[in-house]
């Protein structure tokens, strides 16, 4: 067996062994089964929740919140980022504010966001949009500033209008960095939605994880954690696909 095949086998066998060890340890009560339910019990619960539609309901509402908040954050981040990157006056006006507020952990803004936007859906969109917008702005600015000079020279030599410099040169030129920013933002979005839903919501994956824990339905909590992982993997795959479609010239 060559090294490559061995690695492939290891990458399947190791998680399987861990699951098996967990199963055995839980059943033989080496670990406390009230907190660490056996994988088989969790899977059973997963099927029940899937059939009742409960799981789908929570997943879809979380997905919707992420989608709306992420879109708002990305679109405004790209627009602001292009302006900051291309127009010195905008940069002078906005850059200090952005730099000063960026390090604030966005989870810490949840109380404020809830006061401003209420307990409804708007506060969920807002907290995700806030988390996303910073990363997208910073990456867009950096993308614009690192566009090769030659492309800007061509734009100037052909007297491209400011709008065309935005749409035909700066935006596509910064696109690889913008999408990299979106990928990082997606991870942040998941953290924020789960936090927001466990704090103030009546639905969603985060709500599911937190409430089931509080009422000691541990299997359901694990199903919630599992779904969060699945959601994250799917959204990452979606962005990878988007990257391939949007920037074919960077494909290796």
């Amino acid at each position: 067996m060559n090294a490559k095949m061995l690695n492939r086998v290891l990458s399947v066998v190791t998680p399987a062994l861990l699951l098996l060890a967990w199963e055995v340890a839980s059943r033989t009560q080496i670990i406390d089964f009230r907190f660490f339910s056996a994988p088989s019990a969790i899977f059973k619960e997963f099927v029940v929740m899937l059939e009742s539609g409960e799981l789908l309901k929570h997943t879809l509402i979380s997905l919707q919140r992420i989608f709306i908040g992420f879109t708002i954050g990305t679109v405004s981040g790209v627009v602001i980022g292009l302006a900051v990157g291309l127009i010195p006056a905008v940069s002078a006006a906005l850059k200090p504010i952005i730099d000063a507020t960026f390090p604030i952990p966005k989870v810490g803004l949840l109380p404020l966001v809830i006061i401003i936007f209420g307990l409804g859906e708007a506060s969920k969109y807002a907290i995700i949009a806030i988390g996303v917008v910073y990363l997208v702005i910073i990456n867009t600015v950096s993308g614009v500033r690192h566009i090769e000079r030659i492309y800007l020279d061509v734009g100037r030599n052909y007297h491209a209008s400011r709008l065309m410099m935005f749409t035909d040169v700066a935006l596509p030129g910064a696109l690889p960095m913008i999408i990299a920013g979106m990928k990082i933002s997606m991870g942040v979005s998941l953290i924020l939605i789960v936090s927001a839903e466990s704090l103030a919501a009546k639905s969603g994956i985060g709500y599911l994880i937190w409430t089931t824990w509080q009422v000691f339905e541990v299997e359901k909590m694990y199903v919630g954690l599992f779904m969060a992982a699945v959601l994250g993997a799917c959204l990452t795959a979606l962005l990878d696909w988007l990257e391939r479609v949007m920037i074919p010239w960077k494909r290796v």
Partner: peptide, 9 residues
Amino acid sequence: FQQESVFPW
């Protein structure tokens, strides 16, 4: 231009 100047996108 001497360098590659066509827009890759």
